[in-house]
Simulated assay, not measured.
Amino acid sequence: MPTLIETPEHLGDVVRHTRKALSLTQPQLALAAGVGVRFIVDLEAGKPTVRLENILRVLQVLGATLSVSSSEDSQTQAGPK
């Protein structure tokens, strides 16, 4: 089931949890994603100004994807009212 992420802090928590579940250190994840360790630290801390391009790289290494849906999508999936 997809995880609903609504804040930078929650994204950071999910990244940290997934990284640890894969037994990766922050430096290992940074190297694999081609980003700096500071970026991983900032991402996991929920810093709201991290670069989307780098977030996508990290998610790819973690085997995660990013999906966007709108409230219209939810209504369509639930059926007409």
Results as ranks from 00 to 15, higher is better:
19 R>E: 02
55 I>H: 00
5 I>V: 15
19 R>C: 05
50 V>R: 01
11 L>A: 10
28 Q>Y: 01
22 L>H: 14
39 F>R: 00
18 T>Q: 14
3 T>V: 15
45 A>C: 12
22 L>M: 14
58 V>D: 01
33 A>E: 08
25 T>E: 12
21 A>R: 09
12 G>P: 02
33 A>S: 11
18 T>P: 11
31 L>C: 08
29 L>K: 03
10 H>N: 13
31 L>V: 05
14 V>N: 04
29 L>M: 07
54 N>T: 03
7 T>A: 01
17 H>T: 12
33 A>R: 06
40 I>A: 06
61 V>I: 04
24 L>T: 08
8 P>C: 00
34 G>T: 04
52 L>A: 11
19 R>N: 02
54 N>L: 05
36 G>W: 04
50 V>Y: 02
22 L>W: 11
27 P>L: 07
57 R>Q: 07
33 A>N: 09
27 P>H: 07
56 L>F: 03
33 A>W: 05
6 E>F: 07
56 L>W: 05
24 L>Y: 08
43 L>C: 13
8 P>W: 00
3 T>K: 15
4 L>V: 15
44 E>K: 09
24 L>S: 06
37 V>M: 13
48 P>N: 03
59 L>H: 00
28 Q>R: 01
21 A>I: 09
36 G>P: 05
38 R>V: 10
22 L>E: 15
51 R>W: 06
20 K>A: 12
7 T>V: 02
44 E>C: 06
32 A>R: 11
15 V>T: 04
33 A>T: 08
17 H>I: 11
47 K>G: 06
9 E>F: 13
33 A>P: 03
24 L>A: 10
24 L>F: 08
46 G>F: 02
43 L>F: 11
57 R>V: 02
42 D>K: 08
40 I>V: 10
6 E>L: 14
37 V>T: 15
36 G>F: 11
39 F>D: 01
46 G>H: 05
54 N>G: 02
31 L>H: 07
14 V>Q: 09
35 V>N: 13
57 R>H: 11
38 R>L: 10
61 V>E: 02
45 A>R: 14
52 L>T: 10
14 V>W: 03
25 T>Y: 13
45 A>E: 13
32 A>P: 07
59 L>A: 00
58 V>G: 02
54 N>E: 03
15 V>N: 03
20 K>R: 12
9 E>A: 07
59 L>Q: 00
20 K>N: 10
30 A>F: 06
24 L>D: 04
38 R>A: 13
47 K>N: 13
48 P>F: 01
4 L>K: 15
42 D>W: 05
52 L>C: 08
53 E>F: 07
13 D>Y: 10
7 T>S: 04
53 E>G: 10
58 V>M: 01
38 R>Y: 11
21 A>M: 12
43 L>V: 13
48 P>C: 01
10 H>W: 14
32 A>M: 14
52 L>N: 08
49 T>C: 06
10 H>K: 15
49 T>W: 08
13 D>L: 14
6 E>P: 03
6 E>H: 09
38 R>E: 14
